[in-house]
Structures are given as C-alpha cells and as structure tokens.
Simulated scan of single mutants.
Amino acid sequence: MSRSKTIVAFGDSLTFGYGVKEENKWTNILAKSLGCRVINSGVCGNTSSEGLVRIEEDVLKYKPDYVIINFGMNDHFIKTDGSKEAKVSLEQFEENIEKIIFLTKQINAVPVLVTPNKIIEGNIGDENCGGGATYYYRRHPYYLYKNIGGANAQLKKYCSKIVELGLKHCIATLDINKLCESKSLYSIIINLTNSNEDDGVHINELGAKFYSENIYKTLKNLL
C-alpha cells in the first residue's frame, strides 16, 4: 500500500489497545506492515452511539482512504438498572453502524467492518459479581446473561449483525469473533495467567498481533 494512503481505526478500547504498549498496538503493527499511516481513533468505553458523536472530529476530518469500524464490545452489555436491556439495543446498533458506513462512503473512503473478539466469561460466583466471580462476570453479573446462553452469546448477536451489514452493503468484513473459536482465549486475552490481571475482555500483545495479521490480510485483498 502507498505511504500516501491513510487508514483510520475507529472503535473502542479494543481499537485503542488498552493494556498494550504503544509500539505493540495492532494499529501500529498494521501501519508498519502496510507501510502507510494508520490513525488510532479508538476510545476506551465507547459504544457505537458515542462513536457517532465524535466521527467528524476523529475520523472524517482526516479524509482517510479506509476506515476500520470496530464497535460492539460496549454496546452489548446488559444494563444493571433492572430493564434487562443492552447498553445499546441491537436495533440502535444496526442503525449506528449503517450511519457510520454511510458517512464513511460519503467522503469516498472504504469502510471495513471488524467484529470484537470473544471474551473469557469466567466463574459465575454468586451470579451478582461476588462470591468468587472472575473475569467478565466479576464486572457484569451473570444473572443477567444466564437465560440467554451467557455473555458470549449476547456479544455474538452484535457480531452477527456486523457480518449481516457487511453482506448487505457489500463491505469487506473480518469476523474476529468467529476466528477466536479456533484460538485459545487465554493466549490472546489479558488474564490472570499471562498478565496477573482479572480482565478477560481486552487483547494482550499476542492478541494485538492476531488482530493486525488478520486485518492486514483483509486490507490486502482490497488493493
């Protein structure tokens, strides 16, 4: 790819590279592999709704050639307010991603969809983040997910929607979530074994390499 090309990686903490040294973030590895500029516009904790609020300042103003869209991890969380609703409903998520796609195409940039990785759900404990609950269920109570197949099943709905939108709009789509099915999550996700951290969501340096290698393949196919 030409050094004059610009890519914006647009998403949440998985894009930002939470917990990974700057030089080992997948965006920086990708920039070196492709030999072009990759702007990291990932913001920790962001949903697709929050991404839309900042898309002009963090994406469009750069007039990129490609925009990697990587939301869903924060959208899928089920709220603890008793509503049993996701932080961003699946319907709203679909609307948000389609708007991001539209705005990307409007500036003649090529959108590329990337699903979030699977998570380490962990021990359920007392089903309410206590009693020895670990990883995802240490922060998100299991009782909210027990009747829908668990947290990964909830996340999968959002990943499936991303894949569906890719097909609908004829957009290159990388299903990282599906690729995780053939990987050991304990090797690519920050956890007590490899980082002494009870995380279970964010990718480590091996995970960043996993992301960059597969995104590289996807982008190379577009050239």
Rank of each mutant, 00 (worst) to 15 (best):
N46F: 06
E50W: 14
E50V: 06
V53M: 06
I55F: 10
D58E: 10
V59D: 07
L60V: 06
L60F: 08
I68W: 03
F71V: 00
F71M: 02
G72E: 09
G72F: 09
M73R: 02
H76R: 12
F77P: 11
K79P: 02
T80Y: 10
S83V: 00
K84A: 12
K84M: 12
K87Y: 09
V88W: 00
E91W: 04
Q92R: 11
N96E: 10
N96C: 06
I97D: 05
E98F: 04
I100T: 13
F102H: 15
K105V: 01
Q106E: 12
N108P: 13
V112L: 08
L113I: 12
V114F: 02
T115F: 04
N117R: 09
N117A: 11
I119L: 13
E121I: 08
G122L: 04
G125L: 07
D126L: 10
N128W: 13
G132S: 15
T134Q: 03
Y135S: 07
R138P: 04
R139F: 09
R139A: 14
P141D: 14
Y143D: 04
K146M: 12
A151E: 01
A151K: 00
L155W: 10
K161I: 07
V163W: 08
L165W: 03
L165H: 06
L167M: 11
K168H: 03
A172R: 15
I176H: 05
I176L: 14
N177K: 11
L179Y: 11
C180P: 06
E181P: 08
K183Y: 13
K183S: 13
K183M: 15
L185C: 06
L185S: 02
S187P: 04
